[in-house]
Amino acid sequence: MSNEPIIRVRNLHKWYSGVHALKGVDLDFHRGETVGLVGDNGAGKSTLINILSGTQAPTEGEIFFEGKKVRFKGPADAMEAGIETIYQYNSMVPTMSIARNMFIGREPLKWSVGGIGILDTKKMAAESVQAIADVDLHLRSPDALVGELSGGQRQGVAIARAMHFKSKVMILDEPTNHLAVKETQKVLGFVKSLKELGIPGIFISHNIHHVMECSDRIVAMARGEVVLDKRVDDTSMDEILDVL
């Protein structure tokens, strides 16, 4: 069981009217392993991630999650299964508080009728404070607006959210884009801490230095295909740049 990949992707194709964005991708993601996914713009990595996180449907091919064939109808399905995605910007609502952002779409309710009900705000405040402290991020109040946080703090909250909901796989889509150097280090620290927690991660970045720093394995994509799949120790920056 433990040797079985947590995610298996087989023969995945995606067509956008006239563009063959994914050309039969086969990939395995293993437990306890952080995979760095690199590639140029238009290489197909975002398409692959969108399919894994449920925001797009593949044209052809299969995905197995924990050995079972899955077909996500939307992001909620993927999150339900345990795949959490952290996007460079769009996973937080700046005009809402940290506590409310933590629980968007998964609010704890005191009681409900037909899925709509009264928020358990006390639980939301307490659990968000705990979740943020767990990722070693220090924020004074869960009522602060996310719009007032720095880019690195926002990613920290997004990661805290993913941890809180006990995600089984964490996808980080360009989490270090547009961040200052210090903030970037903080986010890379979060990514490394995933490994200590035994949560497999898929880390997408333009920056090969960042990817090399915190991944166990590198997958490079170009023109909709996987062109390199090696352990970090068995490859080098030059080799990766070469295939891209």
Binding site: S53, G54, T55, G74, P75, A76, D77, M79, T85, Y87, Y89, N90, S91, M92, V93, P94, T95, M96, R100, I104, G105, R106
Partner: peptide, 14 residues
Amino acid sequence: RATGGFLPAAESMG
């Protein structure tokens, strides 16, 4: 609030 505040985030959170 999430839908009006930032639509892509609301959508990506399902």
